[in-house]
């Protein structure tokens, strides 16, 4: 086991930021910590890394208690923070070299690792640029290079794609998967469920300082009663039709807005077929049809009663 956290509790006065937080991360995983802003993801990471004091609980990394002076553990960890943590006065190359130098004493090895990290995030062309000359996306990539240059075994990405353009986002997500394939265990925190679904092998959903659900994305979706979401383009609608559809088997809700009939079903087969059969049999003309499986947002919605982005 790479990380084992038990009953971690962190209070800021009356506010409980982490409430008996438990977590286990296994070797070789990309573990996603998904939750809305303020759910406690970054606080959990800072406590795990012994940056923040906590009131209660234990943190073990590689089966050893984590502490500020646990240098043997620290040298195996890389952190890519939410804020870009680089020096404005140093160039791209110098920044990566400086932070890599805090871990790697051998100069020859360090120079090789720095070059590799810069190549890996795709900013070789900008090596001699100062951070203020870089776009937001390139800055994020530099931030990643600084966190991974020493080739850590455990890499923690804390919301690395906030305010990043789509191209850089794809680049970052692909990079994380490559690092994982190369042997690194990853913890990835985000409030973007699509990203977490895309790259994480296991996901913990956080709310109000606790993990409220944990598992693979399929396991999480199986936990809830919601099934597919069916959207049918309709140009007219009356209340009788809406009520009839709501009465069909396994249909949880139906609503009509923006020329679309939106139907949510519970788990079960042939829900789409039964809706279409009803429309055909009543000679109702319809346009395009979409069927979407439940998302992690549906999981969060069902467990907490609110949207993930609320």
């Amino acid at each position: 086991m790479v990380i084992k956290v038990e009953n971690l509790t962190k209070r800021y006065g009356d506010l409980i930021a982490l409430d008996n937080f438990n977590l286990e991360v296994n070797h070789g995983e990309i573990f996603g910590l998904l939750g809305p802003n303020g759910s406690g993801k970054t606080t959990a990471i800072n406590c795990i890394l012994s940056l923040l004091k906590y009131d209660k609980g234990t943190v073990k990394i590689y089966n050893k208690p984590m502490a500020p002076d646990a240098y043997d553990i620290k040298e195996k960890i890389g952190l890519v923070m939410q804020n870009v943590a680089v020096f404005e006065e140093l160039t791209v190359y110098e920044n990566v070299d400086y932070f890599c130098g805090l871990y790697i004493k051998n100069k020859k090895l360090r120079l090789k690792l720095v070059e590799e990290a810069i190549d890996f995030v795709g900013i070789s062309y900008y090596k001699d640029f100062y951070p203020k000359m870089l776009s937001g996306g390139l800055l994020r990539r530099l931030n990643i290079a600084c966190g991974i240059a020493h080739q850590p075994k455990l890499i923690i990405f804390d919301e690395p794609t906030v305010a990043v353009d789509p191209q850089s986002r794809i680049n970052i997500l692909e990079g994380i998967q490559k690092l994982n394939k190369a042997g690194a265990t990853i913890i990835y925190t985000s409030h973007y469920m699509e990203e977490v679904e895309q790259i994480c092998t296991r996901i913990g959903i956080m709310d109000k300082g606790r993990i409220i659900a944990i598992g693979t994305k399929e396991e999480l979706k199986d936990m809830i009663s919601s099934g597919e979401k069916i959207t049918v383009e309709l140009f007219s609608m009356d209340n009788k039709i809406l009520e009839d559809i709501k009465g069909l088997p396994h249909i949880v809700s139906a609503e009509y807005r923006d020329n679309s009939l939106i139907v949510r079903s519970s788990k079960g087969k042939n829900n789409l077929v039964s809706v279409l059969d009803y429309l055909k049999s009543n000679d109702i003309d319809f346009g395009r049809i979409y069927s979407e499986p439940p998302t992690l947002n549906d999981v969060f919605l069902e467990i907490t009663g609110k949207e993930l982005r609320d």
Partner: peptide
């Protein structure tokens, strides 16, 4: 934030 990065270094 640079301080945070330095603090997690060994």
């Amino acid at each position: 934030s640079q301080g945070a990065r330095i603090n997690i270094a060994p």
